[in-house]
Write a protein that binds this DNA or RNA. Structure first.
Lengths: 345, 345
DNA sequence: CTGAAAGCGCTTACAG
DNA sequence: CTGAAAGCGCTTACAG
């Protein structure tokens, strides 16, 4: 490790940072009142041209930059929104975070990021830690109970992603299309009996996908079972292998790609052939699904768009502007090599 | 897409959110002065037991929660730190972000996340957007010039990660150990001539790795060349294949894993055998390097520890406390199957 | 141990 | 068009 410090800090002498100029400094320099400075800077064009120019010149000269804290205290707006995820390192969230970050940055907002680590308790703590200093919250795959979420949304603008709660704004991509494509794909390959590898109990999205999958499978005359709950991780997928083999199904649809990848690797280690003995489909099409051999067939979710739209939706609620029409967010099957004709089919 | 709204918001009638209680409300209820309330809540044990208890009871009854903005205006501290990355979706950063998030959260700080999109210009904008409302900044793989960084650090606590600038605190894992292991590994396999696939011109880390690699290769009597600059992405790696083949080297060490993966996939598509015709080593050991066939040999960086230590270092600077001894952050080679005996060796 | 007062740096009615 | 004043919700010397 290399750690360098300025001479000052290594002497533990405080680096005296020049105190930032305020509108009072500008007022003095431009010979106007502070209120006039504030107006000049906030609503250009409402003042005498000369005064405004003088004020701007003074501000530039002093290197003035607005203190957002002081403004926030008065306006009650911090120009900041909070994004709460269950697990920062799950690759599913990368695109979502990026989409949200770009959407807010383009409106001069700032993103505050927090993680709940798959725990309702920690999520509650996290929300209360950041809640008071953001203008609104995006809760992704929230592990909180419906009641908690309803209360939260009554005192702060709130948008849910991949979670639905009655009366609360939420964005969930239409999962049916991708699931139908997945089932049609499996059926056409000759599969008759499939399993859904479910995620954690607290995951609304896992139940949601299961319910849609169940109905669609039944209507196609496919046998369908549920295996789990499992941790939504590589390990969770790997750990389910025994139950998958014991179940006798020829195909598995996992709650997410991490589980699908885990199951794939565990299968290969066991010499259980993919896709000959078991076809595997993941969910979300995260980074890495295309890297394995066989590459993982997956139902792609529009994560980047989801993050972006959630942010825009939230900003609209905060600013009380009309939301623009929503683009449809749907899922679609990406066929790769982890699905094939079943040996027993 | 499903978008639900409360009745109020869909009528565009403002949802009247109850205004939050302040210390004045508590003061009235507990029949003390606001200053006493502030003390009771901030420095427990300094007041008369009875008063303190009465105040706490009143606060609980009202559901009081401190307004961090108001406090910040007075103290000048927001309990927030900013993390600026070049590219949020690069998997290298996942663990780093998580490490930093956990470290700051454990100190009741909050993480603000921003992205510079590989552009010095955008990075400057980003820093100025979030700079005034954070207590300090972590700049990861900053694309700013040395002078900009020095100025920045003179008016705000700042810690650099994977970048060194004289006089500015910075954390860079020791890259030499991993590089030595990589070279010894290649040499023992019989390689005599290797290439470094460099990253973007503005990447300090790319130059740093190259310099260390150069010296170590020369001292081992290996021929070494540099190919690039390249975009630090899958595409960047893939695009370099032609130059790699033309160069005649038998092994490549890429600036990062994304490039190594891109090169691997392009090679396979071209029928250029890995590792028989070209051995490939990546850098950082990101998620996904173990998934390919052959799996990618990589120099692992301790990204999570880096993020955590950078955050702790920054908090120490902010609070002017003594930094605890730093643990060594070193790199180490993870041998997988993308390296092997060269056919021409 | 507790209170009155000033101040953090803005914004915004209210006057003129 | 511009200024004086109050206020956002805290904290912290300064008194007593």
């Amino acid at each position: 490790v290399s750690v360098d410090h300025t001479d000052e800090s290594s002497n533990t002498v405080q680096v005296t940072r020049k105190t930032a100029p305020t509108i009072y400094d500008i007022a003095r320099l431009a010979e106007v009142s502070p209120s006039t400075v504030s107006r000049a800077l906030n609503k250009p064009g409402r003042l005498n041209q000369g005064t405004e120019r003088r004020i701007r010149a003074a501000a530039d000269e002093l290197g003035y930059r607005l203190n957002p804290i002081a403004r926030a205290l008065h306006t009650g707006k911090t120009q900041t929104i909070g994004l709460v995820l269950s697990d920062i390192t799950n690759p599913v969230y990368f695109d979502l975070v990026r989409g949200a970050e770009r959407a807010v940055a383009s409106e001069q907002y700032t993103l505050v990021l927090a993680e709940s680590q798959e725990s309702a308790e920690l999520e509650r703590e996290t929300v209360s830690r950041i809640g008071r200093s953001v203008d609104g919250l995006i809760l992704v795959a929230s592990r909180l109970g419906d009641q908690d979420i309803i209360e939260l949304s009554s005192d702060k603008p709130l948008v849910l992603v991949n979670r639905e709660v009655p009366g609360v704004a939420s964005l969930v991509p239409d999962v049916a299309q991708g699931i139908r494509e997945a089932l049609d794909h499996l059926k056409s390959l000759g599969h008759r009996s499939i399993a859904f590898l479910r995620g954690p109990t607290a995951s609304w999205m896992s139940s949601h996908r299961w319910e849609v999958l169940f109905d669609e499978a039944v209507s196609r005359g496919l046998h369908v079972i549920e295996i789990g709950p499992n941790s939504p991780t590589l390990e969770g997928g790997a750990d389910s292998l025994r139950r998958v083999r014991a179940s006798g199904v020829t195909a598995v649809i996992a709650f997410n790609d991490l589980m699908a990848l885990g199951l794939l690797m565990a299968s290969q280690q066991d010499g259980f052939a993919v896709p000959e003995e078991i076809s595997i489909i993941g969910f979300d099409d995260i980074f890495g699904t295309a890297f394995t051999t066989p590459a993982v067939t997956s139902v792609r979710s529009p994560l980047g768009d989801l993050g972006e739209d959630a942010a825009r939706e939230l900003l609209a609620v905060i600013d009380q502007t009309e939301r623009t029409a929503h683009r449809p967010l749907h899922t679609t099957l990406i066929e790769r090599q982890s699905t094939g004709i079943p040996r027993t089919g």
